[in-house]
Amino acid sequence: MNYPDITLTIVAVALYFLGLVVIAAEITFKRENLEKIWQVSVGCGIGFQTAALVARGILAQQVPLTDLFEYTLVFTWALALIFFLLFRKHFPKQASLVLLITITLLMGISFLYYTDPKGVTMPALRSFWLYVHVSLAALGETFFAIAFVTSIVDLVRWAKAKDGNLGELTYRAISMGFPLFTAGALVAGAIWAKKAWGSYWSWDPKEVLSLVVWLVYAAYLHARLVKGFKGRALAIISIVGFLLTLFTIFGSLILGGLHSYS
């Protein structure tokens, strides 16, 4: 059955794709007057994605956070929204382009995991802690994605001109995401695990990978704040951190374990 959530998501992806094509044209042809077009396109994309989430929530009769498709939809929506509201003005065009490529790719991948919104939700997922755990973790990962984008652009600039200047933005994004990720992925996750499975920590692949992600970003913060690291080394840690984050999100489908449904 063709539900409205999928149609609205496709429209949103198309609008993000249009936005990235316009930014690419703006960069390639050095046209300044295209900025409004891609901003309107991305803004409309966010609107359609919001509608897709609302439609899915109504169809499923719950907040859409229970499987990988819904998680990716919420994650990319938050990424687009936070970029649009907080970082758009501070981002160079190249970073906006990389961010839209990331969003479009992730949303493209999410279609592989599309599920019937009226399908069964496991009773274990019917918990208040689902919303705390998943939404905070997704929000934290959103900021890690922003840091990933600025780090990529920084690395390219280092390679080209031996000069990157987005380190401060990367740090700001990670310092915003790290407490959210700590509270959501680790703390709320462990408390929910205790309520659902009887143990705070089970060495489940997704738990372990979340710990690895946390350690990588903790290392980033220590390297910057205590040891005063700057430049490429920090950008590389940020990129590794987000690649591991993606592996944590999608890896549980391959690795199985207690989180194999999400």
Binding site: W203, P205, K206, V208, L209, L211, V212, L215, V216, A218, A219, H222, A223, V226, K227, L244, G251, L255
Partner: peptide, 21 residues
């Protein structure tokens, strides 16, 4: 030492990654 602490963190992260995969 922060340097040694960072090394221990990276080793734990690496072993955890292996154990996760």
């Amino acid at each position: 030492s922060t340097k040694i602490g960072l090394i221990v963190m990276i080793v734990i992260a690496g072993l955890s990654l292996i154990g996760g995969v």
